[in-house]
């Protein structure tokens, strides 16, 4: 096996466990080490590492209950330089295969953290606009949603195609809702996306869902930046 990111050979240790229950590795030890998993105390609503139960951003959101539509977000990794490199290569250069780096982590963290939700909720990946989907060839959120062991409901649709990544915080918060729902859903929903930055995109999507009679929306994302 070769590391998906740095092409170096992966040599796994031989232990009783790996002998009888071999798990294929997609990323080498060194690369894996440079990704930081969020651990310890974290904000209960947005998963950011924080010592107080609710971080400033989330308190700010709570001042506008009409906009604050997402119950909580769970993220696995912190954003860092190495992650940024992987994400740019994966999303913007279009290296689809790199997404499989996160397959194991995404699955196991979901099993661990979303145990109760897994039985009732449906997963909806955050969609891309048609143009962007054609340009990239794939939707990274859809790929992540594939790794989850629950049914998917791809009824959400993106109308405009403004890039969030190039905007400032206030621009993001003030942007118009780009989502539409093709079919109303009356089940609770887990939104799946690759990255939670200010939470505006996820809240826009959640708002549309709640307006159409969805009881609860939570989100499961790969990275909290």
């Amino acid at each position: 096996m070769k590391c998906l990111f740095c092409q170096s050979k992966i040599t796994s240790e031989v232990t009783w466990r790996t002998l009888f229950y071999p798990t294929p590795m997609s990323i080498c030890k060194l690369c894996n080490h440079s990704l930081t998993v969020i651990s310890g105390a974290r904000c209960s609503r947005c998963s950011r590492r924080s010592d107080v139960p609710k971080c400033i951003d989330c308190l700010q959101w709570e001042q506008f209950p009409a906009r604050d539509t997402l119950r909580y977000n769970y993220s696995i990794y912190q954003y860092n330089e190495c992650m940024q490199e992987i994400i740019t290569k994966w999303k913007y250069r279009g290296d689809y295969e790199l997404g499989y780096i996160f397959k194991n982590a995404f699955h196991t963290h979901f099993q661990k953290m979303m145990l109760t939700a897994a039985k009732t909720h449906l997963a909806i990946p955050i969609p891309l606009s048609v143009e962007r989907q054609v340009e990239r060839g794939f939707n990274q959120a859809e790929m992540l949603a594939q790794f989850l062991p629950i049914p998917k409901a791809p009824y959400l649709q993106r109308v405009t195609s403004e890039k969030q990544a190039t905007k400032t915080r206030s621009e993001r918060m003030g942007s118009a809702n780009p989502f539409q729902l093709r079919k109303p859903i009356n089940k609770p929903i887990i939104l799946v996306d690759d990255i939670y930055t200010t939470g505006t995109t996820l809240r826009h999507a959640a708002k549309v869902l709640i307006e159409h009679g969805c009881p609860e929306v939570i989100s499961f994302t790969l990275i909290r930046s």
Binding site: K2, G94, D95, Y96, E97, G137, F138, E142
Partner: peptide
């Protein structure tokens, strides 16, 4: 072969 990969289409 290992330097090729499949993309969803």
């Amino acid at each position: 072969n290992s330097r090729f990969a499949k993309i969803h289409d």
